[in-house]
Simulated scan of single mutants.
Amino acid sequence: MTQTSSTAAPMLTPRFCFDERLFRDFLRLSRSTIDDSITQNLNALMTPAREGFDPSSTAVRQTESGSRKTINPAACQSFKDNVLFPSWQTRSDVLTYCAGVATSPDPEDPDLILRQTESARDREREVNERLDPYSARFFPREARTESLANLIRNERTIEEIIRARTWGMVSEKCTGSSTWEEALNDWRQSHQK
Score class of each variant (00 low, 15 high):
S56C: 01
A183S: 15
G168Q: 08
F18T: 03
A44K: 05
F18I: 04
E155M: 10
S57I: 01
T90P: 04
A149Q: 14
M46V: 08
R125N: 03
T58I: 13
P14S: 00
G168P: 02
W167Y: 15
E159M: 14
S65T: 14
E129K: 05
K173P: 04
T166A: 15
R21G: 11
Q62T: 09
F53M: 11
D186N: 15
R163W: 07
L84N: 00
A75R: 13
T39W: 12
I113E: 12
F139Y: 10
D36G: 15
N154R: 14
Q116C: 09
F26Y: 08
R50P: 05
T90K: 07
R61F: 15
L131A: 07
A120H: 03
A59I: 07
S6N: 04
G52E: 02
R24M: 08
I34Y: 01
P14T: 00
T103F: 03
E124W: 07
F85R: 01
S37N: 14
S57C: 04
A74Q: 10
T58E: 10
D186R: 14
E20P: 06
T90I: 13
S65K: 13
D111V: 07
R15C: 03
E142P: 08
A8F: 01
F18C: 02
A44T: 06
G100S: 06
N150W: 07
R130C: 05
T47V: 03
T63R: 03
E160Q: 11
D111L: 09
P48K: 11
V60S: 04
R91M: 01
M1G: 13
E129H: 03
A102P: 01
D19T: 09
P140D: 05
R141H: 10
Y134K: 09
N82D: 13
G66E: 09
N43C: 00
D132L: 00
L112K: 15
M11I: 15
T33V: 00
A143H: 14
R188V: 13
K193M: 08
W88M: 14
P14F: 00
L45N: 09
N185R: 05
T103A: 06
S104W: 05
T157G: 13
S104Y: 03
A75H: 09
M11K: 13
T145S: 15
F26Q: 01
E126H: 05
L27A: 10
P55V: 03
N41H: 10
H191K: 08
A49L: 12
T39I: 14
T47M: 04
C76H: 01
H191L: 04
D19I: 07
R144A: 01
Y134V: 08
T96R: 12
R61L: 13
A143M: 12
I71S: 04
V127P: 02
D109I: 00
N185P: 00
A75P: 05
D132K: 00
A164C: 07
Q40N: 12
L12G: 03
P110A: 04
R68E: 14
S190L: 10
E108P: 00
E182A: 14
A143P: 11
A44Y: 03
F53C: 07
R115L: 00
I158W: 11
D122T: 10
G176Y: 06
E118P: 07
R153H: 11
S32D: 15
R141K: 14
F79Y: 15
D36T: 11
T58S: 12
D186F: 09
A49Y: 04
E182D: 14
A183I: 08
L95G: 00
A75S: 12
E146R: 09
R137A: 14
E181P: 01
E142R: 15
